[in-house]
Design a protein around this nucleic acid. Structure first.
Lengths: 153, 153
DNA sequence: TCATTAGTTCATAATTTACAGAACTAAAAA
DNA sequence: TTTTTAGTTCTGTAAATTATGAACTAATGA
């Protein structure tokens, strides 16, 4: 597990990005490492050593990432180790989750409109604008993905 | 400042949503209150009392939200109080920020491709897919917003 | 000029989080 | 059968976060 300085730097930057997305620091670093490393698959030990985190932190991080479907592992017969890698199918899911998040927000905002009673209708109108915008986005998203796929061919 | 149970509930749910977006609990509740309250504009005191948070927590939350451009206030002559409200222009900015966030991620991923040296080209291919997808999204977003605006008329 | 109001700042307390280290377990190897 | 390996779980704690309350400030009003 040799990492050059650029790789180490990138792991940190990606780590901070994912911390801001609500991941624990060590978990975020593991994702960064699996993304940036020259080897696609790394063992428990390699991860623990490369990132200088304890076995318990490594265990915790890997299990969290397994549970949330961010990583997976393969095994080889006659080798007790597991080889962890980023679940590559996950990019699409990641984006879908971002959209679902907006969808959840939109649900909250619709309830806000139902619950509050404002004298000045301008406020409700503005909020309605945003709600309609989010609805529109959600609507268009599938065809947008479609178009992208076609444009690739 | 009377809030019914639905409103209180919604403030909490919106609060948790915004906590997950990186806001402090009290800050998130202040946003929720300003969104859900029947009055569009609330004073320092009303906010502090409605949410049952100390003056210092209120001061801190309001200044944070002012600094980050999430709220604004008006004043009335002969009245020393400030009347805080959500900056309504901000919905658009909120969405733009989400997109910028994806754009930042995309920048990181492009650097990942440059830095790592994978034997199996399939991994790079998959990552390239995602990068190209994000690029495509960023490209299409302005015209999508355009279309939405036209569809409103 | 003194009191009040509206809000800020500071020290500190309470809570949460994030991780290390050690003891442990279960399977495989010797 | 004992040892090694690969990882888990549990306990303690350092550090960070978040909020409180009290003291303070600056402006207004009486």
């Amino acid at each position: 597990m040799t990492l050059n300085n650029e790789q180490r730097q990138l792991i940190e930057e990606f780590g901070i990005y994912q911390e801001n997305n609500g991941f624990q620091p060590a978990v975020a670093r593991v994702m960064g490492l699996l993304l940036v490393s020259n080897k696609a698959e790394l063992t428990f030990e390699e991860i623990s050593e490369a990132l200088n985190i304890s076995k318990s932190a490594t265990s915790n991080a890997l299990n969290m990432l397994l549970n949330t479907g961010h990583i997976e592992y393969t095994t080889f017969s006659g080798d007790r180790k597991r080889y962890f890698r980023i679940k590559s199918s996950n990019w699409r899911e990641f984006f879908v989750k971002k959209m679902e998040d907006l969808s959840y927000l939109n649900g909250l905002l619709k309830r806000v409109l139902e619950v509050r009673k404002r004298d000045n209708p301008v406020y409700d109108a503005k909020l309605n604008d945003f709600i309609s915008f989010l609805d529109y986005m959600k609507d268009r998203m599938p065809s947008l993905i479609d178009e992208w796929e076609k444009s690739r061919k």
